[in-house]
Amino acid sequence: MLHRENKIKKYHVSSAADLIQETMEYYDITQTDLAERLGVSQKNISDILKRKRFINEILALRLEKVMGISSELLLTLDSHYKLEQAKANNEITKNDKKNPLFLRRYDWVSA
């Protein structure tokens, strides 16, 4: 039954790294093997899996070709993940109407 007191649970936000790691485990391939197939360094793959680096469009297309994962999905996952991290780190200010940067209509402006 729905109650107003029940809080909505926030779902885990995944990055492309989570899906890549899961696929690597499914196919039992190493970072080195994946790096060779993609034409990048093993360090690059390691940094992506540790979320120190995020995939770009070219790597997303290579991953799609090698792993069969949609490049659009991978880029969307990373985009949403980075946005949630920015929100969590309070890098985006709330729409605080006292904030001088917040857009507002002035009384003296006529429409």
Rank of each mutant, 00 (worst) to 15 (best):
K50H: 12
Q21A: 11
W108S: 06
D28C: 04
I55H: 04
I20P: 01
F102D: 00
S70K: 12
E84G: 01
E25P: 00
M24T: 02
H3W: 04
K87T: 01
M1F: 07
I58H: 07
I69E: 02
G68H: 09
E36A: 12
E64Y: 00
K97T: 09
E36P: 00
V66N: 03
Y106V: 14
G39R: 13
W108V: 08
L38D: 00
D107Y: 12
P100R: 03
V109F: 13
H3T: 10
I69K: 05
N89G: 00
T76L: 13
V13A: 06
H3S: 10
P100S: 05
A111I: 15
Q31C: 09
T32Y: 06
E72V: 09
G68W: 06
L49I: 15
K50I: 08
L101T: 11
I92D: 03
K82T: 07
L34P: 02
H80A: 13
E84F: 04
D96C: 08
I55L: 15
V66H: 02
S79L: 08
T23K: 13
L2N: 10
R105D: 04
M24P: 00
L59N: 01
N6W: 11
A86V: 02
S71F: 00
I55G: 03
K10S: 07
K52W: 08
S70T: 06
M67V: 09
A35Q: 11
R37A: 10
G68L: 13
S79F: 04
S46L: 11
A17G: 02
D107E: 06
G39A: 09
A17I: 14
I55C: 05
W108Q: 05
R4Q: 09
N44R: 15
K50R: 15
I48S: 01
E91H: 15
M67F: 05
L2W: 01
Q42H: 10
K98T: 14
T23F: 05
S41N: 10
M1Y: 08
K9V: 06
L101E: 07
S41Y: 08
I20T: 01
N99Y: 07
L49T: 02
D78G: 03
M67C: 11
R4L: 12
M24Q: 07
D96S: 13
E72K: 15
L83P: 01
N90T: 05
K65I: 08
E36L: 13
D96G: 07
A17Y: 03
E22H: 12
K65M: 08
I29H: 03
E36R: 15
W108L: 11
A16L: 10
S70H: 05
T23Y: 03
K87Y: 13
K97N: 07
K9W: 04
F102Q: 05
T32F: 05
Y81V: 14
L34W: 06
H80K: 14
L83D: 06
R105P: 02
Q42E: 12
A86W: 12
I55N: 00
A60W: 05
Q85N: 11
